[in-house]
């Protein structure tokens, strides 16, 4: 199983490679990727150095171009695919069918991965993408159970990548308009779901208020763990009850499921967090590297070490982790 790590900067890419990532995914400094944050991402010069470094070590660099081209601006997204090809990408991670068609026609030898933003949650969707665009890998949205993933892995020849750690997105990715409702920007059109220009934090006497475009989305008590200011993880009053209306802030942690995922034939484990620092990348990659190696060396004897668990829990959103949709006995 390949370990795919996030990189928001050349320093993070180096940290990922040093810690044992098999592949690193990154984006350009524009709206063509779903982490279009101020000051984040790669210049072409940085990408050149990063690709050279990765190739020298026999590792891979994947380009995320996973937002949806906006009307009249298709050329920006096509240019990103051209840049990825010219800069030596091992694969491009795309979501938009028009862009997939462009990449397939223009660069028939470039590997195509269907982004989690492409929202392919069932066999027909994956097979359609394979038949039409010859995708070689699909990144599954974090809404599927282990049984559903196992079934898909049996039914398709397309490689399967799943998330192993990181902040959770609770919707079928690629279809969320929550932030667009509040701010006009969404992951699909601007590559952000809590655009920084709309976020305001105010703390008084230890009580922290999070506002998105003026809308109060959460109020943390003194010392209570905080989360990213996304609407999905806010607390609201619904039917007289004040709680997390959609999902608690938490990070996905699939450490204990690695042998099962490997046995199902899952080809890659992805770590979320291109917005995080090289320190996060180094620590999370090193932990998952050790765990994947142990799961592959002796699956029957595999058990999650407490220090791995502690290392991941430290970095978790809301300071708590979950197995998310992977384990849903009722489904």
């Amino acid at each position: 199983m390949e370990l795919v790590a996030p990189a928001g900067s050349l320093a993070a890419l180096k940290a990922a490679l040093q810690a044992g990532a098999d592949a690193v995914y990154l984006g350009l400094k524009n709206a063509t990727n779903a982490r279009n944050f101020a000051g984040l991402n790669f210049s072409e010069t940085d990408i050149r150095s990063g690709v050279a470094l990765a190739r020298g070590l026999g590792r891979k660099v994947l380009f995320a171009i996973n937002t949806f081209p906006q009307p009249g601006r298709t050329q920006e997204w096509r240019a990103a695919v051209d840049a990825a090809h010219d800069l030596g990408a091992h694969a491009v991670i795309l979501a938009d069918p028009g862009l997939l068609a462009y990449a397939r026609d223009r660069y028939p030898h470039l590997r195509l991965h269907l982004s989690v933003q492409g929202s392919a949650t069932h066999l027909d969707a994956i097979e359609l993408m394979r038949e039409q665009f010859n995708i070689q890998r699909v990144v599954l949205p974090r809404v599927l159970t282990l049984n559903e993933i196992a079934k898909l892995a049996r039914q398709t020849t397309v490689e399967i990548e799943v998330f192993g750690f990181g902040s959770l997105c609770v919707m079928a990715e690629g279809r969320c308009l929550l932030s667009s409702f509040a701010t006009g920007d969404s992951p699909n059109n601007k590559g952000v779901c809590s655009p920084a220009h709309a976020v305001r934090w105010t703390e008084q006497n230890g009580q922290l208020d999070a506002r998105l475009n003026g809308i109060l989305i959460d109020r943390y008590a003194p010392g209570e763990p905080a989360a990213y200011p996304t609407l999905c993880k806010g607390r609201f009053e619904v039917d007289g009850e004040f709680d997390h209306a959609l999902e608690e802030p938490t990070s996905l942690n699939a450490l204990s499921l690695l042998p099962q995922l490997a046995q199902m034939g899952v080809r890659a484990i992805k770590i979320e967090g291109r917005q995080r620092s090289p320190a996060y990348v180094a620590q999370v990659v090193a932990t998952l590297r050790a765990a994947i190696d142990a799961a592959q060396a002796a699956p029957a004897r595999y058990s999650v070490r407490p220090d791995w668990q502690a290392s991941l829990a430290r970095h978790a959103e809301g300071s708590q982790t979950t197995q998310g949709a992977f384990e849903r006995p009722w489904k």
Binding site: L208, R276, S277, R314, H315, A316
Partner: peptide
């Protein structure tokens, strides 16, 4: 470069205003 700012923020050890 040993600590991630978001991690500190989640743990309420870093305050941004």
């Amino acid at each position: 470069g040993q600590m991630d700012a978001d991690t500190l923020f989640f743990q309420r050890r870093l305050q941004i205003s």
